[in-house]
Design a protein around this nucleic acid. Structure first.
Length: 821
RNA sequence: GCGGAUGUGGUGAAAUUGGUAUACACGCAGCGUUCAGGUCGCUGUGGGGGCAACCCCGUGGAGGUUCGAGUCCUCUCAUCCGCACCA
């Protein structure tokens, strides 16, 4: 092969990037008169820290392939980009270096921008923003105030998770195994007044609407588990000695007659009150103190021996009037249900373990379990009340709840694991909460005209148990907007997940100075047709964004039919190196800049998509990337050569085609069909790229034989066209060389059904399910014909002779299986 | 403990509806091009047996359903990921 055709991505890629920048190819207007269907393709916005890593290259390679495919299949595509620019790493960096977080963040954003352009990602840059820009966080503040006015944002004192390293509170969702998600430090419980969003109001809708969205099942399951809906009953147990009613939540009201004691959480506010002045006071006090100061993770250990202390009081079981002794025990959690439980040791393992440890009675009220207790399964009721004994427990459950309801002793109830979203952060680099605290008027919203509340510049970013903003006295001290009296600004900033809960709405109308968005613009694009990102956001971001969408829709800021932000979700797997996560400490990082420099962006993008199904983790291999580089080089070279050396003849039609033409043309149409299916029905870019490789392999100078120039040019330009969503530069270049046209302006190729169906196929001939021969057979032949063909095979006869034929299975256009004895 | 995912050549993987197991690559081997290396091109490449035609075995393991199972069912092992004293 001539060496004058050298594939040079360093020359090709910048040249096409310039074309796209000059003509604003990927910009899209909010033009509702455009008749084309719209498609909103979005990857999760990056957190700009340092340089983009290989995970970014993967997510944008996937998203860009989808965006390109949607465009070329006739859709008007919104594919924007922005930056989740507030957050702790920039602030921690500021603490050690003194560089303002704004400066380090902007420097990182500039690096991301450069990379995204160098990767050739098809972004509408006119809609770009960072969440740290006042023109954007102004609207984050506006949304906060809208939620505040409707009671969906509120302040309360609560036991919150305090991260002693980050020196800020964290949302429940940011605590994993009792440790701060980011710092890894054991979180402490603190009683603090904090701002919350009332996400629990939306628990049911967040649960129900999962049925309306095309998300991976495991992500839906994770959200369901997180919301943790339990159906049961609330039942009131009364402590007559002190005259206080204690409601408890139970999922098993059918076991009420089996309750033999009653347990409260150490945090329960009444525990100390109930024992004050009694002989148990000291013991209870000691127990509560040790429970509250013990390691949260140790306390949560399922295998931990059950401990507790008697309160010396009793409550009345409302179903039978029995007096149940009260205990305090740390296996009961204040944050779930009412912080108190009825204990049924006969039918609950934990209650059983406690009863064993403290020698409490165990009563069976449900038959089953081979006579062993505890028994958590179903069965008929016993030892309960005459009207319930003998009933199956599932029916008894309903009957008992009805009976409690009629008697005013309880009612059906639903409990959630989900807690309200704590959004206060005692840190600097975030959106200031637009509230002014006035001694006379309370928490007063900053008037809309005064937005944004700008983040003041401070000298010292270090958190000292309060927000760094508190030190900025000129900023903090203001007049109350309501009464004009002296007042103080709220100094906490918002969790950065607030910013990412609405950014996708802003892209629809990114340059609107009058409003966060025009609902008409949002109606045109939302919901996001395809959202793409890491599974690590399965709960946090994806739950919060769903909550925001529903709340904003309820408030009238979104069209009522928009209830979900992301109609379809794709979660991509990680890129590993030698089976390990890439990390600086392991020294196994593959930097996208180095890849692009060495191979070009197309090779890096195509290889990342070729390495395996994109939802799975994949191991990076340098030699694999080299292989992709070879393939792109071969494709480009064949195209350049054909463009120069082969006349631009028309494609031969099937009648005039020689066998080589037919083979090449069929392969091209097969590849069209294969890539189209892989792109539209699933995200199997790896097999799509493999199909393009097969097509190119069939069209090499050595393989194409006597195929006419028209066939070769068609096959090669088709290969370039099919590859363009993955390797847009090399595809654009090769396609232009062959056709003189811009590939992105061409409609996606469609396969000719006549060329997909061959008139002969390879008939698989089996005896007893084992393949013994393959013979050519005419497509559409009758069962009889196929059977005859198979029987005629000499290889088959060797296995048939001397045996008795029992049965023959014929699968038309596929195989024959003869069963012999 | 509960829930979910995965398991196929030396490696990444393919097999879309129960119908040819290993497509496409990487690696390796051989050949050609080249002074050489690299590049590029071609050929071969699951394991075992056989000169060969061919035969046997083979999708983590064990059973089962079926003419036919990587695919369906039962049990089981391993790895990974969620959640977890949630009443």
């Amino acid at each position: 092969m001539s060496t004058e055709y050298r594939y040079d991505p360093a020359e090709i890629e910048p040249r096409w990037q310039q074309v796209w920048a000059d003509e604003g190819t990927w910009e899209v207007a909010n033009d509702s008169s455009d008749p084309r269907r719209t498609s909103y393709v979005l990857e999760m916005l990056p957190y700009p820290s340092g340089e983009p890593h290989i995970g970014h290259l993967k997510v944008y390679s996937v998203g860009d392939a989808v965006a390109h495919f949607h465009r070329r299949t006739g859709r008007r595509v919104l594919h924007p980009m922005g930056y989740d620019a507030f957050g702790l790493p920039a602030e921690n960096h500021a603490i050690t270096t003194g560089v303002h977080p704004r400066d380090s963040t902007n420097a990182s954003i500039a690096s991301f921008q450069r990379q995204f352009r160098a990767w050739g990602i098809s972004i509408d840059w006119t809609r770009e923003f960072g969440t740290h820009e006042p023109r954007i966080y102004r609207w984050t503040q506006w949304i906060f105030l809208e939620l505040f006015k409707r009671g969906l944002a509120y302040q309360k004192q609560a036991a919150v998770n305090w991260d002693p390293v980050e020196e800020t509170v964290l949302a429940n969702e940011q605590v994993k195994d009792g440790r701060g998600e980011r710092s890894g430090a054991l979180v402490e419980v603190r009683q603090l007044t904090q701002w919350f969003f009332r996400i629990t109001d939306y628990a049911d809708r967040l649960l129900e609407d999962l049925a309306t969205i095309r998300w991976p099942e495991h992500v839906k399951t994770m959200q369901r588990n997180w919301i943790g809906r339990s159906e049961g009953a609330e039942v009131v147990f009364s402590c007559e000695e002190v005259g206080i009613d204690y409601p408890v939540f139970t999922t098993r009201p059918d076991t009420l007659f089996g309750a033999t004691f009653f347990v409260m959480a150490p945090e329960h506010p009444d525990v100390l009150r109930l024992t004050a002045g009694t002989s148990q006071e000291q013991a209870v006090q000691d127990y509560v103190n040790s429970a509250l100061t013990s390691d949260k993770q140790l306390r949560g250990d399922v295998d931990k021996v059950k401990t507790g202390v008697a309160l010396g009081r009793t409550v009345t079981n409302p179903v039978n009037g029995e007096q149940l002794p009260m205990y305090v025990a740390d296996y009961v959690l204040m944050e779930y249900g009412t912080g108190a439980i009825m204990a049924v040791p006969g039918h609950d393992e934990r209650d059983f373990a406690f009863a064993q440890a403290y020698d409490l009675p165990v009563r069976r009220v449900i038959e089953g379990g081979d006579g062993e207790l505890p028994y958590a399964g179903d069965g008929p009721l016993v030892n309960s009340a005459p009207e319930f004994d003998g009933l199956h427990n599932r029916e008894a459950l309903r009957a008992i709840v009805d009976w409690l309801d009629r008697g005013g002793k309880g009612h059906a109830s639903v409990n959630y694991r989900l807690r309200d979203w704590l959004i206060s952060r005692q840190r600097y680099w975030g959106t200031p909460i637009p509230i002014i605290h006035c001694a006379r008027c309370g928490a007063v919203p900053v008037p809309e005209a005064d937005l944004p509340v700008l983040l003041p510049d401070v000298e010292d970013y270090k958190p000292r148990g309060r927000s760094p903003l508190a030190a900025s006295e000129d900023w903090v001290n203001v007049a109350c907007p309501s009464c004009g009296g002296p007042a103080l600004r709220e100094t906490d900033t918002m969790d950065t997940f607030v910013d990412s809960s609405w950014y996708f709405l802003r892209y629809c109308d990114a340059n609107n100075d009058e409003a966060a968005w025009d609902p008409a613009a949002v109606a045109q694009w939302m919901p996001v047709d395809q959202y793409i990102g890491g599974v690590e956001h399965a709960i946090l971001h994806l739950l919060y964004a769903r909550f925001f969408t529903k709340a904003l829709s309820d408030l009238g800021h979104l069209p009522p039919e928009i209830q979900e932000p992301f109609a379809a979700l794709f979660t991509q797997g990680m890129i590993l190196r030698d089976g390990d996560k890439m990390s600086k400490s392991k020294g196994n990082v593959v930097a996208p800049t180095a890849l692009v420099e060495r191979f070009g962006a197309d090779t890096a993008r195509c290889y990342i998509l070729f390495i395996g199904p994109p939802d799975q983790d994949a191991d990076w291999s340098d030699t694999g990337a080299e292989g992709m580089h070879r393939f792109l080089g071969r494709l480009w070279r064949l195209c350049a050569e054909a463009a120069d050396e082969l006349p631009d003849d028309p494609i031969p039609d099937l009648d005039s085609a020689n066998p080589d033409d037919e083979r090449v043309l069929r392969k091209a149409h097969w590849a069209i069909e294969k890539v189209t299916k892989d792109m539209s029905e699933r995200f199997n870019f790896n097999t799509a790229i493999a199909a393009v490789m097969e097509l190119v392999n069939e069209t090499t100078t050595a393989k194409r034989g006597d195929a006419a120039p028209g066939s070769v040019r068609f096959a090669l330009s088709t290969a370039a066209s099919l590859l363009s969503p993955f390797g847009p530069h090399v595809a654009a270049d090769a396609y232009q060389l062959l056709t003189g046209k811009h590939v992105w302006e061409q409609p996606w190729p469609s396969a000719d059904p006549a060329l997909l169906e061959a008139d002969t196929f390879e008939l698989v001939c089996q005896v007893n399910g084992k393949v013994r021969d393959r013979v050519p057979a005419p497509t559409g032949a009758s069962r009889e014909t196929l059977l005859e063909l198979a029987r005629a095979s000499s290889k088959l006869r060797a296995h048939l002779d001397g045996h008795q034929e029992v049965k023959a299975i014929v699968v038309p256009d596929k195989l024959v299986n003869i069963v012999v004895r």
